[in-house]
Design a protein around this nucleic acid. Structure first.
Lengths: 140, 140
DNA sequence: TCTGGGGCTTCCCATGGTGGGAAGGTCAAG
DNA sequence: CTTGACCTTCCCACCATGGGAAGCCCCAGA
């Protein structure tokens, strides 16, 4: 398989495959006499694994851990779950952050006339900072 | 005010102040004879504005729009609200994405023994792809 | 066997914000 | 005038991805 075929078979772009090899997420691929990278089914499988892990938002660093666990048949499922739950916590924290922003913005937008007049609590808030009730408590 | 004082007064690092100037978010600061940037209260005010907008997750591009509206006393509040609601939509979309990941991961983690045994549905899912009920539908 | 063109190679650049650090100049207090 | 804190610019890094250029490889078709 060429890198293009591996890309098509895995959903990971050729660019990214080379990048993953460069940063050591993947072992260096075998090469043809002419220098072309060659991939097998096993490689394509690993690439699909990576692709799915990325779709679930795992950073490359965690994916490396997951790949190592995957390849280690003596792994403990507890170790895998630890990686997963840690990632869940990270995602949840991010969600909470974003929800806080949304809450504040909704509050501000709700109090903005949204017409031709220039006065606007959104700008007032950005300019003068937190003054009233519902504020950036989520931030601390 | 030196850049360090402006940074302390606004919560924006000196590095970032220079960066914002470089990308045109801020006008070039006045300079002393020796080349030091000089800031006034007005500048500090704008920096605090930027800081708060960033805390609300606005990308620099949107902040530029907000700053322009802020400085334009003939603005329509509707324009401000449009920027805000657009950003809210972006944030919400991101939240939905993250929630989808969390949902999938929770489902997988719940079915993982989490003990010393090696078999693990989390790895199975990453390796073999979506098979059962609760899947990455959120993704499409 | 030659040729064409599509795919491959490496290398550099950009994104978006942020930080770190080096080399050198400035400023204000003493 | 010295000293040391602060400023200047410039480069590098992160994370993950894409774009593009210059040049080489490979195979199908003539």
């Amino acid at each position: 398989m060429t890198i293009g075929e591996a890309a098509a078979a895995s959903g990971v772009s050729a660019k990214m495959i080379r990048y993953y090899e460069e940063i050591g997420l993947l072992p260096a691929a075998a090469r043809t006499a002419g220098g072309y990278r060659v991939y097998g089914e096993r490689d394509a499988h690993a690439l699909r694994f990576i692709r799915r892990a990325r779709d679930l938002g795992f950073p490359v660093e965690r994916i490396a851990e997951l790949l190592a666990l995957w390849r280690d048949r003596t792994r403990a499922s507890a170790d895998v779950r630890k990686v997963a739950t840690g990632h869940i916590a990270t995602l949840r924290a991010r969600i909470v952050e974003l929800q806080g922003m949304v809450r504040t913005l909704e509050h501000l937008a709700a109090h903005c006339h949204g017409d031709a007049r220039p006065d606007c609590p959104i700008l007032d808030d950005l300019a003068e900072g937190p003054r009233d009730t519902v504020r950036r408590d989520h931030h601390g």
